[in-house]
């Protein structure tokens, strides 16, 4: 067996291992560390901070392990600018399952909007509730209020404007929800550009199908966008629409969609190649 093939097998195994670690590690923390924090910290705000901090450190360790074990390369550019970030809406494109993990590894004080069903889950109830995450099954207005409150309290909030993982090579299509949050809360936006090349853990691809070359996850911290620029439009809804348009164009330009050979063709080429080598 050639070294290349062995290396690829290792990466396939590694991806499975790291997915399992999220499930197992998450459950372990949910059953040991988080209940202890909850017991030791009565004050909900301090409890939130502590749980967020443990999550942040765990995810940092996780990303470092992926990199060191050569399952994938993880490159973070400009992460130092996120250390003191507070009260910002963190906006990113969403090429793979691990984006959220990597972003949480870069930002200490961060919250996200998660599935409401987790509040009924015996293990994760304490994690999502304790960390102060926002549930996605709230009524739209209540959801906006919850987001605005957490931002005003100085937490950062991650949103993926595409709403779902990006199809590799497709032009990003942004939903308006994130722009409604930003314009209602008056929160600045911290932009992050994520690439994952060659793609793994993307939509419609089984986790074990790893590409011939090792994947590079690159997270580039972009500008902090002043929401005041958009609030100058004559109405809030209009500001939200302009914001969506602006960011769609920016992400599309930055991630190089529409140019020959980069987008859909490359993805097609990759899937065809992956299909052959697995068969």
């Amino acid at each position: 067996m050639s070294l290349d093939r062995l290396e690829r097998l290792w990466r396939g195994f590694g991806v499975g291992l790291f997915l399992a670690v999220i499930g197992l590690g998450g459950s372990l923390l949910a059953l040991s560390v988080f209940p202890l924090i909850a017991l030791a910290t009565r004050d909900p705000t301090r409890r939130q901070r502590r749980i967020q901090w443990v999550m942040h450190l765990s995810f940092r360790l996780y990303c470092a392990a992926i990199h060191v074990l050569r399952v994938a390369d993880v490159e973070m550019r400009g992460a130092e600018r996120l250390r003191g970030l507070a009260g910002c809406l963190i906006v990113a494109n969403h090429p793979s399952l691990l984006d959220v993990v990597m972003i949480m590894a870069m930002v200490p004080r961060v919250q996200c909007i998660v599935k409401g069903a987790l509040w009924r889950h015996p293990f994760f109830r304490l994690t999502v509730g304790g960390a102060g995450y926002i549930r996605n099954d709230l009524e739209p207005e209540a959801l906006m209020r919850a987001c605005a409150e957490t931002l005003a309290a100085g937490n950062n909030l991650i949103v993926f404007p595409e709403g779902t993982r990006t199809v590799p090579g497709a032009r990003p299509q942004f939903q308006r929800g994130f722009a409604n949050i930003a314009t209602l809360a008056g929160a600045d936006l911290q932009l992050i550009f994520v690439t994952c090349r060659p793609p793994i853990l993307h939509k419609g691809n089984p986790w074990w199908r790893v590409p011939p070359r090792r994947t590079v996850f690159a997270l580039e911290v972009g500008e902090r966008l002043d929401i005041g620029r958009f609030l100058r439009y004559r109405s809030r809804p209009l500001a939200a629409r302009k914001l969506v348009e602006f960011l769609e164009n920016l992400y599309s330009e930055k991630l190089g969609h529409g140019s020959v050979g980069s987008g859909a063709e490359a993805a097609d080429h990759f899937s065809a190649e992956a299909g052959r080598s697995v068969a």
Binding site: P140, E141, R176, G177, N180, L184, S235, R236, P237, A240
Partner: peptide, 9 residues
């Protein structure tokens, strides 16, 4: 192309 938050406005 209105959304539920637009409806509030």
């Amino acid at each position: 192309d209105l959304d539920s938050i637009d409806a509030v406005d």
